[in-house]
């Protein structure tokens, strides 16, 4: 019952940036859904549209960015139809967001407590100052900040990077939102701090029953925390599935390339890292066919002419590649034809 109800459904979302040089289709028709209490990872390289997509959910898209199509249903309501005031009440209250750089995301001229309390009071006018402060201290303790009663009156510059990100998380969760969007929350942090923050987010997700959309380019982080993964390339979701499917049975050549280019310590045979050749496409002039085509080792003529449709690979595992439309050969997946192609 609960399983079937979706918290968030994104359908055919299109976002464009209208720059002087022309329309940049940053997000070009993506669809996915997110259940209650689920952690979805969105992976992709810089410029793949993963952050843009998240900003459009929370209504933070800045001019010249504009949603040009599709819908975003949050508990059945299309948030794209919200007016400014409704969107404001929605932000921070139902959905909140944490960002990449904790060093610049907190206002330097106000105390941490002030900024935490503001998140609370701007959605609930009735709450008293003392209550808000008590809640702020409680949240700081929850995210593992020692001596929270004193820390609450300090300024951001008195906090370290990791602590600031903790404070950001506390601020994001203070209104008990149903969805937390984390936009590369660990990228700017030291590796050890990264691990701590991830651990904290995992804990909090269980404690608070929050769904999370976790945006990152770091596959290791995805494996750590996510239930499902969407892989984005140039404004499209190229592959989507459960985390184990994506990691152990990747189907799309881009996903494969991404995994092959990530160092892994858990594998016994330490393969060489294989970089993905070429550079991401120019979104101002996207190719006619598959966006990944020009960089793909298995690229076929059709790939340069037609965008590949999704192939359903079972258990919600989908992938958009023409290779999936070929006969399987002796038990191997179609993609195994890669070697042939290379030898040819």
């Amino acid at each position: 019952m609960e399983e079937n109800r979706k918290l968030l459904e994104v359908k055919d979302l299109k976002v464009s940036f209208f720059t002087p040089a022309g329309e940049v289709k940053a997000v070009n028709g993506i669809s996915y859904s997110l259940g209650y209490n689920e952690v979805m990872g969105i992976v992709g390289e810089s410029g793949s549209g993963k952050s843009v997509e998240a900003y459009s959910i929370i209504g933070l898209l800045q001019s010249p960015g504009k949603v040009t199509g599709g819908s975003i249903l949050f508990e059945g309501e299309n948030v794209l139809e919200y007016d400014a005031e409704k969107m404001r009440q929605f932000r921070g209250n139902k959905v909140s967001m944490i960002f990449q750089n904790p060093m610049t995301c907190l206002n330097p001229v106000y105390t941490i407590g002030n900024q935490l309390m503001e998140a609370l009071t701007c959605h609930d006018k009735s709450i008293s100052k003392e209550q808000a402060k008590a809640r702020a201290i409680q949240m700081l303790e929850l995210v593992g900040i020692n001596n929270a009663a004193k820390r609450v009156d300090q300024y951001p510059h008195e906090f370290s990077g990791g602590m600031r990100q903790r404070a950001m998380i506390a601020m994001a969760l203070i209104c008990e939102p149903k969805l937390l969007i984390a936009d590369e929350p660990t990228t700017a942090l030291d590796v050890t701090i990264q691990a701590q923050i991830l651990e904290l987010m995992k804990d909090l997700q269980k404690k608070e029953n929050t769904s999370i959309i976790f945006i990152t380019h770091n596959l290791g982080v995805v494996a750590e925390i996510c239930d499902r993964v969407s892989v984005m390339y140039a404004g499209h979701i190229v592959e989507q599935g459960l985390v184990q499917d994506i990691f152990y049975r990747p189907q799309h050549p881009y996903t494969k390339g991404l995994i092959a280019s990530t160092p892994r310590l858990d594998e016994e045979d330490q393969e060489r890292l294989v970089p993905i050749e070429g550079t991401p496409i120019d979104l101002l002039n996207p190719p006619k066919g598959c966006n990944f085509g020009p960089r793909c080792k298995n690229c076929m003529k059709i790939c340069l002419r037609e965008k590949p449709p999704y192939a359903d690979l079972g258990e919600g595992h989908i992938s958009a590649c023409w290779l999936h439309f070929m006969k399987q050969k002796s038990g191997k997946t179609a993609l195994a034809g890669k070697e042939n192609a290379a030898n040819e």
């Binding site: 404001r88 921070g92 960002f99 995301c105 701007c122």
Partner: peptide, 17 residues
């Protein structure tokens, strides 16, 4: 254009504020 303004907006703070 600073990040902390984006944070404030993400919190749902009123535009005037």
């Amino acid at each position: 254009n600073q990040d902390y303004i984006r944070t404030a907006r993400a919190k749902g703070v009123k535009t005037r504020s």
